[in-house]
């Protein structure tokens, strides 16, 4: 199995075997050590078993007594586990440790998407986004999670373990991204119909890039600069989209669905399901219930192609 792990350890955007942070690294080594150790023990036990079956009776006789059990079944595991247990506890102590000065982020799990809030820090204002976590490389991150409905679980394999999002409780997860890149997080606790389609992007940026991104996010939504986009905004208003979605700087202030102020800047839509472009946005609006059945948003199939393009174009322009 260890070889299989090594082979599969190639880069993955959602893999515990491709650690991109200290905690994930620590757990990765724990995994490797336990896998190698486990494999050796496994080979030893099956080797003894086969020896007991196939070796000549006089050669295997030494194995056929109580001593085998006392040594192999009692003493050996006690020694091995007496080492493993403190090691595991030490890794546990050093993993997921709160650090002063960490970047706070609040994430709320909802059926079937993620509400993400960056609280105000010094002069930088707070803002809401969704289905995307952007973090600076090198600075510890402190994520507080909870749920608005059922239990979800917040898991970014490349950065460390998962933490459940439980209604009525606030849990926290600490990690540090140490390599810039694009990763993927996912809901790990079964949360209903579309549990399978509840993921999010995690983007680790260099600190300056992160600050730039953050400044952009704090700003209100960009004004449409083309007639088509202005029409899109009008459709957004008249279509009642604002009763569920907020676009800061406009009258749309719904709190039920994801904040769309900078939806155009996100990599994907539908909670990590599709790349973000006018085509997929239009498809999403017209066909949600087909592509993500039982998501909370209804399909708006009655929009004409023209209207759909305008609406999607407007959203796409909200960089």
């Amino acid at each position: 199995m260890s070889c299989a792990l090594a082979v599969a350890g190639c880069s993955g955007v959602q893999s515990a075997l491709d650690p991109a942070g200290g905690d994930a690294q620590r757990i990765y080594w724990l995994t490797v050590i336990m896998t190698v150790g486990g494999t050796l023990i496994f080979l030893l036990v099956t080797g003894l078993l086969l020896y007991a079956i196939f070796a000549a009776p006089e050669r295997r006789a030494w194995l056929g007594g109580r001593r085998t059990i006392v040594v192999g079944g009692l003493a050996f595991p006690i020694v091995v586990l007496s080492v493993l247990l403190p090691y595991g506890l030490t890794v546990m102590r050093d993993t997921d440790v709160p650090t002063p000065g960490a970047l706070p982020i609040e994430v709320v799990g909802e059926q079937y998407w993620w509400r993400v809030r960056y609280p105000a820090e010094q002069e930088r204002g707070e803002f809401l986004t969704a289905n995307e976590l952007v973090v600076p490389v090198g600075r510890p991150v402190f994520v507080s999670v909870t749920s608005a409905d059922v239990i979800h679980s917040f898991w970014i394999p490349n950065f460390g373990g998962k933490i459940d999002m439980i209604p009525g409780r606030i849990n926290r997860l600490n990690f540090t991204a140490e390599r810039p890149g694009i990763y993927r997080g996912v809901c790990a606790e079964f949360c209903g119909d579309q549990h399978a389609r509840m993921a999010f992007d995690v983007i680790a940026l260099e600190p300056e890039a992160f600050e730039a991104w953050r400044l952009e996010q704090v700003k209100p939504a960009r004004e449409p600069d083309l007639p088509l986009l202005a029409r899109g905004r009008e459709l957004f208003r008249t279509g009642g989209c604002g009763s569920c979605h907020a676009v800061r700087g406009t009258e749309a202030n719904g709190q039920f669905g994801p904040d769309l102020t900078h939806v155009g800047s996100r990599r994907t839509i539908g909670a990590g399901q599709f790349p973000n472009n006018i085509g997929t946005l239009a498809g999403w609006i017209a066909n949600v219930q087909h592509i993500k059945p039982d998501a909370r948003m209804p399909s708006y199939g009655s929009l004409t192609g023209e209207d759909l393009r305008a609406l999607a174009g407007y959203l796409e322009s909200l960089k």
Binding site: S82, L85, L89, R93, P98
Partner: peptide, 13 residues
């Protein structure tokens, strides 16, 4: 074994 954690882990973190 059940006494070991007291030496390693913080009380409630």
């Amino acid at each position: 074994w059940h006494g070991i954690p007291a030496f390693i882990l913080p009380a409630c973190a």
